[in-house]
């Protein structure tokens, strides 16, 4: 039933015909990346009130991003449509003290602007991130998402991930 006059594309974004580039984030990207990170947090708030977003989230996000860029045990990938940042994936290396495999690459933030979704961009980003995290020493790739986020759940399950942990919370 999808109307035919809806624009569909897989190779390029709405801004033009050049393919979307995925690359490591640059310092100058920090502000636009921070916007996207704040969007992920706001989205999380839709799933649970314990994810209420603080007022100065944007400036915190910028610091968070700046400290990520250039850190040897962290990864920050962006998807860019020309000069516009349309997607971001942040991950960090973590040690698993008691388990084997004992090094994990943890995806902490992953967001793609709505109109760039369903173009296999998420798939490309998670693939590239996995490869880079493997190079950095990760033996498994894990991702942190709200339990109620069924869209994220479907995304990972479809790509062979399975739920490893449940993270419970309540107000004391």
């Amino acid at each position: 039933m999808t109307p035919q006059n809806r624009r569909k594309s897989s190779a390029s974004g709405p801004q033009g015909t050049t393919p979307i580039q995925i690359h490591r984030a640059l310092k100058g990207d920090a502000s636009s990346i921070a916007d996207l990170v704040v969007r992920t947090k706001r989205l999380n708030n839709e799933f649970d009130p314990l994810f209420a977003v603080v007022e100065d989230a944007k400036s915190r996000a910028e610091k968070y991003i700046v400290s990520t860029i250039g850190s040897p045990d962290k990864l920050l990938l962006v998807a860019a449509d020309g000069s516009k940042i349309v997607g971001v994936l942040r991950a960090e290396m973590r040690e698993r003290i008691f388990y084997d495999p004992h090094v994990e690459g943890l995806v902490t933030d992953f967001y793609i602007l709505p109109e760039y979704r369903r173009k296999a961009l998420g798939n490309q980003m998670i693939k590239q991130a996995s490869a880079k995290l493997k190079e950095m020493g990760a033996q498994i790739i894990v991702a942190d998402v709200p339990s109620q986020n069924e869209i994220a759940t479907r995304f990972y399950v479809k790509r062979g991930f399975r739920s490893l942990n449940q993270f419970f919370g309540k107000s004391p």
Binding site: R6, R7, R42, E46, L113, P114, E115, I151
Partner: peptide, 23 residues
Amino acid sequence: YPEREDVDKLMLKNKWKYEIAIH
């Protein structure tokens, strides 16, 4: 419009309006 602040919320609550916002 696609970048409107609440578009992600629409994706969860009203996918029909979400489609419209994007297209």
